[in-house]
Design a protein around this nucleic acid. Structure first.
Lengths: 255, 255
DNA sequence: ATGAATTTGTCCGTATGTATA
DNA sequence: CTATACATACGGACAAATTCA
């Protein structure tokens, strides 16, 4: 029983787990704990500070959500690798085609080793947001993809469209995933942006599994719709972008 | 000791606190728990499910970070009020002055009841990000402001500049807060955008206090720098925008 | 390939502090 | 001032995933 703290509350105003969190973050930033290095185990850290393991877990949980460490059961807790912040340079900001995280083939320009893989094609359930955006009450075809770079997920993308209007759409996905290209090449339909929205949310359990992050991690949530030549809403899409890996940047300096 | 679950692991594959979280969210979405309504206390919920209070707290913690409920010590846990998501319409996307969350006087166009108040003017500590952006190693003047609308915080803004270059700067803030206007009117310096960056992060304790949210809530983090006519970096700024209240939207439909 | 050891994940019980009504 | 309700913290136990001999 340390005189400096008792059950229920420490002497100071800052909770113990916040103190531990701050100290660990200090060690990471100072390089005492290097990227990739494994932290001491939770019982060891608990012994070092003379606190309960749960207190350590609270501190590490915060660090994990913020992306400073990665925690894996059975393996341990490691300092997160140097986050190569992918700079997304907006070419001019003037063209609607080149907006933030466009639905075109190259989600992140300049990142050459990126791959986009098909995760799932489904049609089962109602999805209100998509149905509202497309003005339809019927079930829609849903396509989920995952974009990775450097061996790690960058973002997950989902889009919805009316399957009956584009028969055999799913079959064309073997060649190319990008919906705009499939629609143009196989159906002669050219889509353009209707609207896009961007906000910050937290990763759900499902998001976290796919993106290989902890549930509750910050993600940029981007959604939007595209219309065809007759201005009929045809494509609704969502994108969840790892906040710890991607930073959109706009440079005006050289202009 | 329920046969359906034992210490350490429930019978199913989904953790207890996830089940509780999902069920509470279901009640909120179904309207069984209405916005503003108070949830049963943690011990009551624990008794209802026959689980430990810690399990309830884990579930509620996730809901709080996601913005579905607000938790206040001594008061209770309430279903979050209907979040009037302030849509930030980007006028054209063409002009650099009208970019996302610009540093001008009206952070959120069309939101008339918004107020920007001065929180603090300080100079004490070193701030590496600002010093690097401005290419200075000296202490900088820091100005913190808070933008509110509908009686609730929308975003917090901080900017840094070299105090010695602009003597008496802090004194001018009584009239107007926006740095670009103060610099133009009192020093004849016209700044323009050098760069802007945008990503998603989690609210720190300090952020959370000011923004009236739970630490760990999602925020859009925006930073950038402005340069003067000689292209000298003069102003560095950060902005933390509540993800639960603000959604940036871009409309191309009528163009 | 197998099994043991290691490490994190989940859950229970209890106690006390602090903010709010 | 008192009661209520959440915040923090301790201790113990077992499950599940990973690692490694």
């Amino acid at each position: 029983m340390n005189a400096a703290r008792q059950n229920g509350r420490p002497s100071g105003r800052v909770p113990l787990y916040r103190q531990v969190e701050a100290e660990l973050l200090r060690r990471i930033r100072a390089g005492t704990l290097k990227p990739g290095e494994r932290l001491p185990t939770e019982p060891e850290l608990a012994a070092e500070w003379g606190v309960n393991r749960l207190t350590i877990r609270q501190a590490i949980g915060e660090l994990a959500r913020a992306g400073h460490v990665t925690v894996r059961q059975g393996s341990g807790t490691h300092v997160a690798a140097e986050q190569l912040t992918v700079e997304y340079a907006l070419p001019t900001l003037a063209s609607a085609d080149a907006d933030v995280g466009s639905a075109t083939a190259m989600p992140i320009p300049g990142q050459e080793d990126q791959t986009e893989t098909l995760v799932e094609v489904s049609e089962q359930d109602a999805f209100p947001a998509a149905q509202e955006a497309l003005g339809l009450s019927e079930p829609l075809l849903r396509v989920d993809t995952l974009v990775e770079a450097g061996g790690q997920p960058l973002l997950m993308s989902s889009y919805w469209l009316h399957a009956e209007r584009f028969p055999g759409f799913a079959g064309h996905l073997a060649d190319r995933i990008a919906p705009l290209e499939v629609l143009r090449e196989h159906y002669g339909v050219n889509l353009r942006h209707a609207w896009r929205a961007l906000t910050a949310t937290l990763a759900s359990s499902a998001d976290a599994t796919l993106l290989d992050i902890v549930p509750g991690s910050p993600v940029m949530f981007r959604e939007g719709a595209n219309v065809d030549e007759q201005r009929v809403p045809t494509l609704y899409l969502q994108r969840r972008i790892r906040g710890d890996r991607i930073k959109f940047t706009m440079n005006y300096s050289t202009a």
